[in-house]
Design a binder for these strands. Structure first.
Lengths: 226, 226
DNA sequence: GTTCCGTGTCATGAAACTGTGACATCTCGC
DNA sequence: GCGAGATGTCACAGTTTCATGACACGGAAC
């Protein structure tokens, strides 16, 4: 795994120092700033591999920094949001963030997310990803199973792609509703379940015993290759 | 450290046997083949955790096997190359190998490389913590003991995660009721105890003498690794 | 208009989960 | 050793959660 050049933006000095220290210990090379302006300069001149932005910043806030970074570069971005601030998540993802992490964050968790995203960014050069018989072509938006092409509807495809984006991770229904469907939906609904069933019916050899999309009772669904 | 399912491909029977024996002794589970074709079949059907490929093979050579494995899966690959053959190394890394080892190889060295790569692969996708034999993956919401996956129900999992979040600290029943259950529960019941008992039954080798979740009489429970 | 497709909702039944309370067992102070 | 209080153990039924299939609605294609 490559040692990453990380750009960290966090205005609280104690949090910033703590994170910088922790990430350095994990083997990353970190540069940190307190404001978005400095960070944007850094992106332009130094080309870091990944940016970690606190959402609440003086001056330009983290989401706006994320948006401007997107205009400059394909740099992966992780947003740090205050606990339970759902709105931030929606806006952040819309601004093009690759992931978000709720503060206070454990260094171990942040490190895991960084590595996952870097790995994802690495493998994103090839638009095709395969899990055994299942091949997903993200460029052509085509899915095939054992060489045979499978037709997925737009919603089904978005759901599958979102699950595949986080292989092995459990994604809960609220998150899926927000990301796969648009913003405001009734929380209590079996909509996600129904869509998962539809995808399973198409990609699972035996939908009753799924090998790709697993149900995690009480939490959500997890994509993990057989 | 997890016991790895290793796929070994080496056409020289004496080298193959020697390596297989050595790796098995180090605690790995090894399957070996003499040709790339058999190996690819194995990857498709059995999903090993890591592949070790000799570069010089009859039929499809090791580098090509590596390339094809890459198309199938994100499986880590170690290439075995003959001494001093620089060209192989470059080609091998281009084919997507994670590491290469020069023959003749000392089992101890090979084992170290294997463990390093597995550790990397492990921490790359998910955040997990381990306490001895007990491994808790908070991203995948999976718990395993001595490599064997353990199924916990939602409440059991929430309880365990809460205890693990505060290792070494005593958490009282009122606190656990509030955090793990929804605050609307009577303080005086055997609820917490029953749930702790259920978790113990699953993760403790000998539930009667717990090594993970300890009872602190009069106060509550404490998670502390053995 | 009609037809077809995509999608959200709902009813149903099966399976899994969980609170409860009775009772057993343990621990500690005496 | 005894007793009281604390904790462990267990079974079971009510509840929750999910899979499944049917259905209705709206929009796009024709």
């Amino acid at each position: 795994m490559p040692v990453a050049g990380i750009l960290l933006v966090e205005d609280d000095p104690s949090v910033r120092t703590a994170l910088e220290l922790a990430l350095t210990r994990q083997g990353h090379s970190v540069t940190s700033y307190a404001t978005g302006e400095e960070a944007l300069d850094h992106v332009r001149s130094r080309r870091p591999e990944i940016a970690i932005l606190d959402v609440m910043l003086p001056g330009i806030d983290g989401v706006e920094v994320c948006r401007r970074i997107r205009r400059l570069d394909q740099l992966p971005v992780i947003l740090l949001t205050a606990r339970g601030d759902d709105l931030d998540v929606v806006v952040g993802l819309e601004a093009g963030a690759d992931d978000y992490v709720v503060k206070p964050v454990e260094p171990r968790v942040l490190d895991a997310r960084i590595r996952a995203i870097l790995r994802r960014a690495e493998s994103a050069t090839s638009d095709r990803i395969s899990f055994g018989d299942l091949v997903i072509d993200r460029g052509a938006l085509k899915v095939s199973l054992a060489g045979k092409e499978i037709h997925l509807t737009p919603t089904e495809l978005r759901l599958l792609l979102e699950l595949v984006r986080h292989p092995g991770q459990v994604l809960n229904r609220r998150y899926l509703l927000r990301v796969v469907w648009d913003h405001t939906h009734v929380a209590d609904s079996r909509l996600v379940d129904a869509c998962v069933q539809r995808v399973r019916a198409k990609i699972e050899p035996r939908p009753a015993e799924p090998v790709f999309i697993h149900t995690v009772r009480g939490f959500g669904y997890r994509f993990s290759p057989p």
